[in-house]
Computed example of a mutant assay.
Amino acid sequence: MTIIDQTVAPARDDDLVRIAAKLTRDLNVAKPLIFWTDLLCSVSLGYAGLALACVASGVTPWISGIVAVLALYRAESFIHELTHLKPATVRGFYTAWNVLVGIPLMTPSFLYEGVHNLHHARTRYGTAQDPEYLPLAGASIWALSCFVMLSVLAPLLLLVRFAILAPASMIAPVRRKVVARYSALTINPAFRRVPPTGAFRRRWIISETITSLWAMGIAILTVVGLFSVRWLMIYLAVLAAIALLNQVRTLVAHLWESKGKPLSVTEQYLDTVNIPPPAMLPILWAPVGLRYHALHHLLPGIPYHGLAEAHRRLLAVLPVSSAYHRSNQAGLWPTVKIILVRDHKACA
């Protein structure tokens, strides 16, 4: 590990990035064994729990359903890693994730590819062009509750998106609207997506077609009685619970203080949140490194399995007065309380 003078705090906007990058340079390499083991264990546990929830009785479906939600939520969270992985870094992972997770859960990776990177663009973060940002700071508890609870509608919306809108989009005018408004995992309702091009367009069409067939198959099999209505309800309930967990995580990923103007690197960092140990519950609701969201914005090239070590190094080296320490929060509810009382002055 590189040793840096611990008495020197980053003085300029680029100092924090420079020092952090120097301290963590060796952590930028994705480890395929960790990726594959984590994904396959999560998928196996998740689908086993889902199957047991469908066929068991008594209290078992509730317990196995919770296991399915937590395991599949972890598996689905790898969509975030996919957007940052360099090509061929973890060979076959892109295809495997879509086959095992993206298509069965109706969240193929094209919904996030080419979208999430805009959230990291220095000139877009916190502006109207950021697909993953809303000015939530200072909102009422009612508004934040609605923001979170609306996420439970996601499975029904995804079912409509792929079972109805996808085949209907063979008509050109419908296709333009579907691509622009209904083909991205975002929270900014003003965001409009541009049509894909090149190799990405081909991948998009392939995964969209397969996901559409999956969604239509579920609907048709349920109507004709080959797929139990109970199974459908459990499947959609698990997806709704996953969406709810992710929306809770999204709520406390930022302090949402931007007023729509581009922010400096330090301002962007201070608008994002880490919820590191000793808090333990983020292991469940912010898996795959998502508890280190501020650190991820600072150093987006570090794969999820390197973030905890990067955090330890930065805490040990950077003085308490540095900006790095100021983005560390104690937990979910303390962060929500900060969001509720903020008045947008910090990033005006």
Results as ranks from 00 to 15, higher is better:
Met170Asn: 05
Leu159His: 10
Ile187Gly: 11
Val174His: 01
Val152Phe: 07
Leu150Asn: 05
Val179Lys: 09
Leu157Gln: 11
Ile187Trp: 05
Leu158Asn: 03
Leu185Lys: 13
Ala166Asp: 02
Pro155Arg: 08
Leu153Val: 14
Met170Asp: 01
Ala166Leu: 06
Ser183Tyr: 01
Arg175Thr: 06
Ala154Thr: 15
Leu158Met: 12
Leu153His: 07
Phe162Lys: 01
Phe162Ala: 04
Arg161Leu: 11
Ala166Cys: 04
Val178Cys: 05
Arg175Pro: 03
Leu150Ser: 06
Leu159Ser: 11
Leu165Gly: 06
Ser151Glu: 11
Val174Glu: 00
Lys177Ile: 14
Leu157Thr: 09
Arg161Asp: 04
Val160Phe: 14
Pro167Ser: 03
Ile187Leu: 13
Leu158Pro: 00
Leu157Ala: 13
Leu165Thr: 07
Val179Gly: 08
Arg176Ile: 10
Ala166Phe: 01
Pro167Lys: 03
Arg181Met: 13
Ser169Met: 03
Arg175Asp: 07
Asn188Thr: 09
Arg161Ser: 09
Leu165Pro: 02
Ala168Ile: 02
Arg181Asn: 15
Pro189Thr: 12
Ala166Gln: 07
Leu158Gln: 06
Val174Phe: 00
Val179Cys: 13
Leu156Pro: 00
Ala168Val: 06
Ala163Thr: 02
Tyr182Asn: 12
Ala180Thr: 09
Ala163Gln: 03
Pro173Phe: 09
Ala172Arg: 13
Val179Asp: 09
Leu150Gly: 07
Val174Thr: 05
Leu156Gly: 14
